[in-house]
Simulated assay, not measured.
Amino acid sequence: MATLLTQAEIESALPELPGWAFTDDRLQLTTELASFPAVLALVAAVGEVAEQRNHHPDIDIRWRTVTFACTTHSAGGVTQRDVELAQQVAALLAEA
């Protein structure tokens, strides 16, 4: 089982994750893109990364707005895998 990060470890990771917040035992980002197709393209790219890592975010799509939530359900909170996935999502968003 993955090891949960401490509050201090999570807080130290957040400056490297623009727009992300720690809430409800998860890293979460809500962002708006220019169009619905742009949101779908981002979600597809995140899906590919998630499959490669075998670690998947919760994703909520509302027209041009998408929310990503990273948590390790089996561990009951945020682990290093979630920070790494959030970094990947942030990199893909920067390219979008």
Rank of each mutant, 00 (worst) to 15 (best):
M1K: 03
A2K: 14
A2T: 11
A2W: 10
T3C: 00
T3K: 12
L4Y: 10
L4C: 06
L4W: 12
L5T: 05
T6W: 09
T6S: 15
Q7Y: 00
Q7K: 12
Q7C: 00
Q7R: 13
E9P: 01
E9S: 04
I10T: 06
E11V: 02
A13R: 01
L14M: 04
L14C: 05
L14D: 03
P15R: 02
L17C: 06
P18V: 09
G19S: 04
A21N: 08
A21S: 14
F22D: 02
T23I: 11
D25W: 01
L27F: 07
Q28P: 02
L29T: 11
L29A: 10
L29S: 10
T30V: 06
T31K: 14
E32W: 01
E32D: 10
E32M: 03
E32A: 13
E32Y: 01
L33K: 09
A34V: 13
A34P: 09
S35I: 04
S35W: 04
S35R: 07
F36G: 03
F36E: 07
F36I: 05
P37N: 10
L40S: 12
L40V: 11
A41F: 03
A41R: 15
L42H: 12
L42F: 13
L42D: 13
L42C: 10
V43F: 10
V43Y: 11
A44N: 15
A44C: 01
V46Q: 09
V46P: 07
V46E: 09
G47C: 09
E48H: 13
V49W: 05
A50F: 10
E51A: 07
Q52W: 00
Q52M: 02
R53T: 01
N54A: 12
N54V: 01
N54C: 00
H55N: 06
H55M: 05
H56N: 09
H56K: 09
H56Y: 11
D58I: 02
D58L: 03
I59H: 04
D60M: 05
D60V: 12
I61V: 15
R62H: 14
T65C: 12
V66D: 10
T67M: 08
T67C: 06
F68Q: 13
F68M: 14
A69N: 07
A69V: 01
C70L: 15
H73S: 07
A75D: 10
A75Q: 08
A75S: 15
G77E: 07
G77D: 06
T79H: 02
T79Q: 01
T79C: 02
Q80A: 15
R81V: 11
E84K: 05
L85W: 04
L85Q: 07
A86N: 11
A86L: 08
Q88R: 14
A94N: 07
A94S: 13
E95L: 07
E95M: 04
A96G: 14
